[in-house]
């Protein structure tokens, strides 16, 4: 069954069209990368998936229910692009609070803190953390709910290569265990870690593909090159 089905999704923000009729489906248990340049509409699409974005028209179905249904709040986890955690609480207090909202206990909260590599910093105030640590604290607050669908907006920004690899390994493990993940990034290098790629450009779906297929279609072993080739081809410019 598909975890997410999007049909003819049109979103306007301010007076501008941001998404122009997107359609795609995401099967359960896949790690899907949402890639595209800054301003292409990645965050807007993710907001539509979790049901906080007002949409003009179209349908977004998540785990069999319309996006944003009350029943989904337990089953969908969302991490915003800017870390949204309480700066005047410690990492552990933040995660324990969100754990309580999802009906989980202190043990699960501590495990989630350890999962994002913050066990050492658990007693630090979030305001006193580095930018990358803050993002991970925000991530832990979503992981602790063990949702069926995780929507992560650029969770690896500002992280060093080691941590980034660790987090992607963790995402892959979650997907292997049956969780559906939608992860946005504008670093094409991260695309190779995904099962599936949605490439967004100016609010249109440029491609619904896989890393292997993107390399073949773009005629380059380098995903960034391949993506650029695809962009040029779609704009009618010879590669």
């Amino acid at each position: 069954m598909d975890a997410v089905v999007v049909r003819d999704l049109v979103v306007e923000r301010g007076r501008r069209g941001v998404l122009h009729g997107l359609g795609f489906a995401i099967p359960t248990g896949q790690l899907t990368g949402l890639l595209g340049p800054s301003g292409s509409g990645k965050s807007t699409l993710m907001r539509a998936l979790v049901g906080v974005q007002r949409v003009r028209s179209g349908e977004v179905t998540v785990l069999g229910e319309p996006a944003g249904s009350p029943g989904l709040r337990r089953r969908v986890g969302y991490v915003t692009q800017a870390p949204s955690v309480y700066g005047d609480l410690t990492v552990r207090e933040n995660v324990r609070y969100f754990a309580a909202l999802y009906g989980r206990g202190a043990r699960e909260a501590d495990a989630a803190v350890a999962d994002v590599g913050l066990a050492e910093a658990a007693h630090q105030l979030v305001d006193d953390l580095s930018g990358g640590q803050r993002g991970r604290a925000s991530l832990a607050c979503a992981l602790v709910g063990e949702p069926e669908l995780l929507v992560l907006d650029e969770p690896t920004v500002g992280l060093d290569p080691v941590l980034r690899a660790e987090l992607w390994a963790r995402f892959a493990a979650l997907a292997a265990a049956g969780t559906t993940l939608v992860v946005s990034s504008h670093v094409m290098d991260e695309a190779r870690r995904c099962d599936r790629l949605l490439l967004l450009r100016d609010g249109d779906l440029l491609a619904d593909t896989t890393p292997a297929r993107l390399r073949a279609d773009g005629g380059s072993p380098d995903l960034e090159e391949a993506f650029l080739a695809l962009v040029r081809a779609s704009a009618g410019v010879p590669a």
Partner: peptide
């Protein structure tokens, strides 16, 4: 915004 996506 985040709280409003949780069961709270």
């Amino acid at each position: 915004e985040r709280l409003l996506t949780t069961p709270l």
